[in-house]
Amino acid sequence: MENYVFEIDHLNVWIENKHILKDICNLKIPKNTIFAIMGPSGSGKSTFLKLLNRLLELKKNVKIEGEIKFYGQDIFKIDPIRLRRRVGIVFQQPNPFYHMSIFDNVAYALKANGLIKNKADLINAVTEALIRANLYDEVKDRLNKPASVLSGGQQQRLVIARALALKPEVLLLDEPTSQIDVVGARKIEELLISLKEQITIILVSHTPQQAARISDYVALFYDGRLVEWGQSENIFTYPKNELTEKYVAGRI
């Protein structure tokens, strides 16, 4: 059981009475892997991702049925604030706090959550997060500059550092490179690979090529349903399901 971070079964989600996720069964996210989720837009990928750290429940008129376990524990019985500190998320559009310095962006959650009070510890934690996000060398001389001086790719890594500062066990990423140039995107992909030794990564990917490059496991969502999931090398070369075949071959 400890080998799976999330276990999802019989999951259904309605938003505003619209059936968004339909009977997602027997989906298990193995620990310390990159688990990619792909599918056409509107297939429910973002909805699914936000479910995993209970951000979805902030929306109005959301109805959730079924089972989601986090290390074997029912996530709906975990305090959402605690859960979110353990399961970080990064969105499509880089969204650093533009009014804060680079340093404060990373330090913010630690300070606001009262996790670190001592200045020296804070500096250590911020430095560590920036190093883990592969950004430290690029920003170490301008930690007090506002986040807006960074490029899109750097901003996205800053956002990753901001999430990593809380030392999460899982990082959710929703199409993190779709707004980033190729070089920036490649750096983020390399970063994710290096992170998976310590944490589990669930990545909504905007291209099957990216998913193929970096994921260990991959799932296809289509029209709110889980079509197929499994090890990436199998799915991309020998998909079992015809829809998967069509999706990765670009026939839909």
Binding site: K50, N53, L55, L58, P80, I81, R82, R84, R85, G88, I89, F91, N95, F97, Y108, A109, A112, N113, R162, A163, L166
Partner: peptide, 15 residues
Amino acid sequence: EYLEVGYSLGLTDSN
């Protein structure tokens, strides 16, 4: 821009 980000960083409502 920041509601989800704030909650995702484990902030409380008031924060």
